[in-house]
Design a protein around this nucleic acid. Structure first.
Length: 644
RNA sequence: GCUUCCAUAGCUCAGUGGUAGAGCACUUCCAUGGUAAGGAAGGGGUCGCCGGUUCAAAUCCGGCUGGAAGCUCCA
């Protein structure tokens, strides 16, 4: 210890000298013992520091409690060390990979001969709790590369990580009890501050995310600053499970799957109604944006795919068939078909832009392990369109596409984020063209005032793209719409139009989809609305129930027929069952409106209306009900109950 | 495709080597007039498929198919 002093500034503006090499813990202690007790980590000039890390120069500090965002992150990080320590204690010979924090928790990748199963998680958790109870102080140490290599000489994965650390960077290790880990930190001062955690899952994960590498066992956990938040987490998980589109799809008879066609959905009558509504909605909107709808074959000669470049980039994911010694492929995309339509006749600049839309069924052979209900399938319907434009029309046309997308998403109440994806490694065409295309997209987004994120290297192989991510009712993000610029396809297919100077020139193609996949979009809608669809989408919009079949059958039939005439999807439940039974069933089927008709309604020519999710009923004339429900359907009103 | 787990009645699930169970749904009968389940009886399963171990397999082992959570991939 020397006598040098450093000047420390606190958040309230006050300042004080401390001996050099003082720690945040010392400073907290100075202010008050209770602050020291509460603080688990701190910020030094905005950077998160361990409580016990010596400070050697003047700075601004801020002390943070466990329930601060930084505190929680550091706590999760410490939790993952405790996990690794527990696994080492229990399984002996274990090599550690990486153990980062993720949303709500953490994981650690471990390499061990022993197979860790979900059942082992309980045992590991117990050991973790023991380590927490042991209240092990956590110590940070700066070491040299050489020292570190000695420490981790028996840890091949750690050595690999260590050798990737640039020479100018400090190498730090963290110790708690017998456990040492290579780690950037920071960490909590002691293991007992990890309060509320649970291990959730175990799965395989490739070392360094590369499928050529060894597969490690990844143990997942969640951790929060209080037991209450942990409980809340599991509660929300339960809620999400209740909304799972696979479960609701079964419960509401929307769709099914069969072993005879893995990854390919069968739509039941109820689900097909919703799909048709979605299609009709977009078809009408596209009409107003001057699109023309086409239909191309499901299967085309393999030659076409070789020509388009899909063969090279995508053949492993395509389905093939051989008939009459000819090789055919099921289309994985609609674009080549649309290119053929464009080429079918001579085009003039006066024809542009040509907006060619198709609800096209595509087949893609996805890995069996990635299939997931309607969200990830092997056959789906794209609301695809290809817009052929002159280069000068790009900006205007993209602007109009983004307007269309906005119209659609607003209808469902989706907020969305915009992302620009640039040239991937496996790309086609000249880099200068790519740069030009990326520049054009950026320009439009800026002009429209979108706050967009750039996703380097995530573009399609033929061009950069704008992806739209929607946020659902549980605040989960889904990529749906995409707008892609393509200079390659026109080149490959030698597309031309005649310009003002009577010269043959190349058009540019804009690919775009709004729902993306109707199947996937339906899956997202099911979860977003929890199965309680807005009236315009609901498979059954009104259920008509007589108080007594004997006395009110005539009137319920009359009302049902009247609603049918008005184009409303209505069902009449005249089974010999109690009224309460029928109401329960209608509610469980999440039908927007129940009409109960008895003596009173017959006498007054009224209907008694109960909306989904509500206990209260309203009495009104049949005509008033028709007017109101038709208004709701025409305006595609969103019921507010689905956000509750 | 890879790792781990799972597959029992239409659905949700119980059943750890000795003759297949529950609730809901379904069928029949009885009852039945006002906003979330009226009562009784009955039918229904080659325990995903194929093979092995065993006197005996839903149960143990192997393969296949399908599913789940991740990883990888996603034009």
């Amino acid at each position: 210890m020397n006598n040098e002093k450093i000047l420390i500034s606190f958040p309230d503006g006050s300042q004080k000298f401390f001996p050099k090499e003082s720690t945040l813990e010392d400073m907290a202690q100075f202010i008050s013992p209770s602050l020291k007790k509460k603080s688990v980590v701190g910020k030094v000039n905005g950077k998160v520091f361990d409580m016990k890390r010596p400070i050697d120069s003047d700075c601004e500090i801020e002390l943070l409690p466990l329930n601060s965002p930084e505190g929680i992150e550091v706590m999760r990080h410490t939790a993952t060390h405790i996990l690794a320590q527990a696994v080492k204690r229990l399984f002996g010979k274990v090599n550690l990979g990486i153990g980062p924090i993720i949303e709500s928790g953490f994981y650690y990748d471990v390499d061990t001969d022993q197979n860790i199963t979900k059942g082992d998680l309980v045992t590991i958790e117990k050991e973790m709790n023991r380590i927490v109870a042991e209240n092990l102080p956590i110590q940070r140490e700066v070491v040299s590369q050489d020292e570190a290599e000695k420490i981790f000489s028996k840890d091949p994965l750690k050595l690999e990580l260590l050798r990737k650390i640039p020479a100018e960077e400090e190498v730090t290790i963290y110790k708690q009890g017998e456990f040492i880990d290579l780690c950037r930190g920071p960490h909590l001062p002691s293991t007992h501050l990890v309060k509320a955690f649970a291990l959730t899952n175990v799965s395989g994960a490739y070392w360094q995310g590369n499928s050529d590498n060894k597969m490690l066992q990844r143990i997942y956990g969640v951790a929060f600053s209080s037991k209450k938040e942990l409980d809340q987490y599991f509660y929300l998980l339960e809620e999400a499970k209740k909304r799972d589109h696979r479960r609701l799809g079964k419960q509401l008879d929307l769709f099914m799957f069969s072993d005879e066609a893995p990854g390919m959905p069968f739509y039941l009558a109820n689900g097909q109604i919703i799909r048709n509504e979605l299609e009709t909605f977009l078809r009408n909107l596209q009409d107003s944006f001057n699109y023309r709808e086409v239909k191309t074959p499901l299967m085309m000669n393999q030659r076409l795919w070789e020509k388009s470049g899909h063969w090279n980039h995508y053949k492993d994911n395509m389905y093939f068939s051989e008939v009459d010694h000819q090789h055919f492929a099921l289309k994985p995309m609609n674009c080549p078909g649309h290119m053929l339509i464009f080429k079918d006749k001579l085009r003039s600049y006066r024809d542009l832009p040509i907006r060619m839309a198709e609800f096209g069924q595509v087949h893609r052979h996805e890995f069996s392990g990635s299939l997931n209900g309607l969200l990830r399938v092997r056959s789906f319907c794209q609301d695809d369109a290809h817009i052929f434009v002159a280069p000068t029309q790009i900006e205007e046309e993209i602007t109009s596409v983004l307007r269309l997308i906005d119209d659609v998403y607003r209808t469902f109440g989706f907020h969305y984020e915009v992302e620009l994806s640039t040239r991937p490694e496996k790309s086609m065409g000249a880099i200068s063209l790519w740069n030009q295309a990326e520049g054009a997209l950026k320009e439009v987004l800026k002009k429209l005032g979108y706050d967009f994120r750039i996703n380097e290297g995530d573009g399609a192989f033929y061009g950069p793209k704008i992806d739209i991510h929607i946020k659902d009712a549980l605040n989960r993000s889904h990529q749906c719409a995409t707008v892609q610029l393509d200079f390659q396809m026109p080149e490959k297919f030698d597309l031309e139009y005649i310009n003002e100077q009577n010269e043959k020139v190349r058009p540019v193609v804009i690919h775009r989809a709004v729902f993306g996949s109707i199947d996937r979009f339906l899956g997202i809608l099911i979860e977003h609305f929890g199965g309680a669809f807005p009236t315009w989408l609901a498979p059954v919009q009104v259920k008509v129930l007589p108080v007594s079949n004997d006395a009110h059958k005539g009137y319920t039939e009359e009302v049902t027929n009247r609603l049918k005439q008005e184009g409303i999807r209505v069902e009449h439940d005249d089974r010999e069952e109690k009224l309460g039974y029928k109401i329960r069933e209608a509610q469980m089927n999440k039908i927007p409106f129940i009409l109960v008709l008895g003596d009173k309604e017959v006498r007054e020519g009224n209907v008694n209306v109960r909306s989904y999710g509500e206990k209260k009923t309203r009495e009104m004339t049949l005509e008033a009900f028709i007017l109101s429900i038709k208004h709701s359907i025409e305006n595609k009103e969103i019921r507010d109950t689905e956000y509750s």
